[in-house]
Amino acid sequence: MTEAVRVEDLSKTYDGSVTALDGVSAAFAGGTFTAVMGPSGSGKSTLLQCAAGLDRPTGGRVFLGGAELIATTDTAITKFRRDRVGFVFQDYNLLPSLTVLQNVVLPLRLAGRRADRRRCRAVLDRLGLGDRVDDLPEKLSGGQRQRVAVARALVAEPAVIFADEPTGALDLRSARDVLLLLRAVVHEHGRTVVMVTHDPVAASYADAVLFLADGRLAGSMTAPTADAVAERLAHLGDTAARVSGAAA
């Protein structure tokens, strides 16, 4: 199975003293759905941001689709991302002045690529938004806005979709719909999804879970269940608390 994302000995330090990542190495195979979890401050969002090219690591290497993300200029990194990566964020990141369809085609326009509006409409229709293409985001529910964000990530046909707490602002039913959608993106369309979440139920929709604690890898789990994930997280939190107490 080919690797969609690989990070090698990744480190990230802020202000020269706060270590968010400490030598993390991990690989995410193509066509898989992985949740990244850990206690608050464990480095999970930093890992996603560095792996996606949204932030520059202090050290280590990042590979997307077998090509190394080399930190040269911001413009070069942006172009590299646009060709390989899609994003889904907790706050949707939709432009309020653009319609649903305009939001979906925006990444293609920014990349200088021709937007096949018929295909974009087909994607929106498949996500249950075929009758909302001309609506502004303010007219949509939270779950519908997140589905627009997923559609926007899909139309560029990226190798990997990074999702940062995609269900954090949704009610239970909308969250379930979005998680089923992400799982379908992987298992029916062959995409790769890497999702940061704090919710064991959300993690149970993934194929595997990668755990972080104190900026380091702290284990993994395949075929996760919500109860098993919650139990593992509780132990990770206990470990982090003991380490913090010892340091104090």
Rank of each mutant, 00 (worst) to 15 (best):
T2D: 11
E3V: 07
V5C: 06
R6C: 10
D9W: 06
S11T: 13
S11G: 12
G16H: 01
S17G: 04
A20M: 04
G23D: 02
A29K: 03
M37R: 02
S42D: 12
S42T: 10
L47K: 11
Q49S: 15
G53S: 12
A67F: 15
T78P: 07
V88Q: 07
F89W: 10
Q90E: 09
Y92T: 01
P96V: 11
N103E: 14
N103R: 05
V104N: 03
L106F: 11
P107Q: 03
L108H: 11
R109H: 15
L110S: 13
G112H: 07
R113L: 12
R117H: 14
C120I: 03
C120Y: 02
C120S: 08
L129H: 02
R132H: 14
P137D: 01
L140P: 04
G143D: 02
Q146W: 07
R147I: 08
V148W: 02
A156I: 08
E157W: 02
A159F: 08
V160G: 03
V160Y: 11
G168P: 12
G168F: 09
A169Y: 06
L172P: 03
D177C: 01
L179M: 05
L181I: 01
E188H: 01
V196A: 06
P200R: 08
Y205V: 03
F211W: 06
D214L: 09
G215L: 05
P224A: 11
A230F: 13
L233M: 13
L236A: 10
G237M: 15
A247T: 14
